[in-house]
Design a protein around this nucleic acid. Structure first.
Length: 447
RNA sequence: GCGAAUGUAGCUCAUCUGGUUAGAGCGCCGGGUUGUGGUUCCGGAGGUAGUGGGUUCAAUCCCCAUCAUUCGCCCCA
């Protein structure tokens, strides 16, 4: 008989209670910010017909990175590698019944068959948020503003992250008309732009001139230098500035300024890999040069709903994953202390287990999350277990306590202990609840 | 899919250029204390050195393969 491995599947993680607390903290914050902005939660199936992704997601994502199989009915099926196509399908199906603007969000897990590494897992969890049915730049500004608020809700300051913004129409115009590239060259150049911040300046230059070809290299490089030096619309060369797409970008920036978002910048090198984007694209980056990593990304994708045979509906959205967000939060020391959801551990003294169980039942009636140690081990072992589980309080229950109804009530963090009545204990725990999380009105997200 | 590094106890690591029964710290379990932990003392369990093959009188150490982990590329959350 061979022994089974304890390791989880490659690229997937086990979430022990301490890990799950971190994940739930992130989920809770996401729920709170999205609901405050009037977004409603929805859900989609884990499985989709493969062609839902084949249509628009991008070649590599579908052919190389999708977990797909043929089901017993001979259907080609994929486990969702992303949300947007499913959501577009869903919106298309009920496009006449939804109230617009349709503001929707979801928190779910996805699978991509990739080589795992730092900030990348095969199974990952992300927030998806989208607004449907509004043309113009207002949805972009709204969604980017929410992205910024999410970052701040996690405690990030504007110095810690930057919102980079670009526009697909501008990119296309720039590639074809300003730089004079054909489709193949443009594709290569987009990939190169995408990597600009990850490679040496000289390497960027070499590869760029190779794409231009010997004849056009000098003029092309000169133009690219002008482009990459541009940190706002105003810095762009005049040939580009009059383009319609530039006006769109300008409008987005004006709206963000009015909304008080100060850390958004124009970045002509921002590309985004997915094929379905049609207008504004944006990403949030860590400003720490050691973590040159995108922690949120999205854009406008007006064509996707129309693929399902209905009139197109304009759409803007973004996704943020827990994997890279966790790296960001811990690097900036933004992860709070997250104690156990269990608030009280009761330790029976001597032969008072029945009394302890009754006390626990009374506490639960008051909504206090309570466990009882039923191991009958030595006292110090029981205390150690409660502390290890990061439960906040201990009540010791012996015959004396049951008679007097005054219980030694210990704070495991400070080691302070006092004798309290049942009522005082309940109010202490509830005070602590309000004080620590600060968002008791969202207590339902603690589930 | 490509490149590189690593793999010894639950965790972090020793074991000097291959040489007797592979060690330590932390953790875990038990006891000193039939009512108080994270900072005491004593004892104990736990390893076919990722796995398989090869070289050798002899392999944790050298070689090959394989698997896993990590870091990059590609791509992306």
């Amino acid at each position: 008989m061979t022994t089974l491995s304890c390791q989880p599947y490659k690229g997937a993680r086990d979430y022990y209670p301490a890990d799950k607390r971190v994940q739930n903290y992130i989920f809770r914050t996401w729920h709170r910010v999205m609901q405050l902005h009037g977004y409603e939660e929805y859900g989609v199936p884990l499985l989709e017909p493969l062609e839902v992704y084949a249509a628009k997601s991008g070649k590599e994502l579908v052919s190389e990175q999708t977990y797909s199989f043929t089901d017993r009915g001979d259907r080609k099926v994929a486990i969702r590698p992303e949300m947007t196509p499913s959501l577009s399908r869903m919106v298309a199906a009920k496009r006449q019944e939804l109230g617009y603007p349709a503001r929707l969000y979801n928190i779910g897990n996805y699978l991509r068959y990739e080589r795992p590494q730092k900030g990348r897992e095969r199974e990952f969890w992300q927030l998806n948020t989208d607004i449907f049915g509004v043309e113009g730049e207002l949805p972009e500004a709204e969604v980017i503003g929410i992205a910024s608020e999410i970052m701040k809700a996690f405690g990030a300051t504007e110095k810690m992250f930057v919102i980079k913004i670009n526009n697909r129409n501008l990119i296309n115009y720039m590639m074809a008309h300003y730089l004079g590239l054909d489709a193949v060259q443009a594709q290569l150049m987009m990939k190169l732009f995408d990597r600009k911040n990850k490679i040496e300046a000289s390497e960027f230059k070499d590869q760029a001139s190779e794409i231009f070809g010997a004849d056009a290299a000098d003029a092309g490089l000169h133009k690219i230098a002008t482009l990459t030096a541009a940190h706002s619309i105003a810095d762009l060369p005049e040939d580009l500035r009059n383009n319609q797409a530039v006006q769109e970008v300008q409008k987005v920036f004006t709206l963000l300024e009015q909304a008080g978002v100060k850390n958004a910048v124009f970045d002509i090198t921002l590309m985004r890999g997915l094929d379905y984007y049609t207008g504004t694209v944006f990403e949030v980056f860590d400003t720490d040069p050691d973590n040159n990593r995108s922690i949120l990304g999205g854009g406008r994708y007006d064509g996707l709903v129309g693929l399902f045979g209905v009139e197109p509906i304009s759409a803007v959205g973004f996704a943020q994953g827990t994997t890279t967000l966790e790296i960001f939060l811990s690097a900036h020391k933004l992860l709070p202390e997250l104690p156990s959801t269990t608030e009280i551990g009761i330790i029976p003294l001597g032969t008072t287990l029945q009394g302890a169980l009754k006390l626990a039942a009374r506490l639960r009636e008051e909504g206090v999350k309570t466990e009882v140690d039923i191991t009958e081990r030595k006292l110090d072992k029981q205390i150690k277990s409660v502390v290890k589980k990061q439960v906040q309080f201990i009540i010791f229950v012996g015959d004396e306590e049951l008679a007097s109804e005054q219980y030694p009530f210990k704070d495991t963090a400070t080691a302070e202990e006092e004798k309290l009545s049942f009522e005082r204990i309940v109010s202490k725990v509830k005070d602590r609840r309000r004080g620590s999380s600060g968002d008791d009105e969202f207590a339902e997200f603690f589930e």
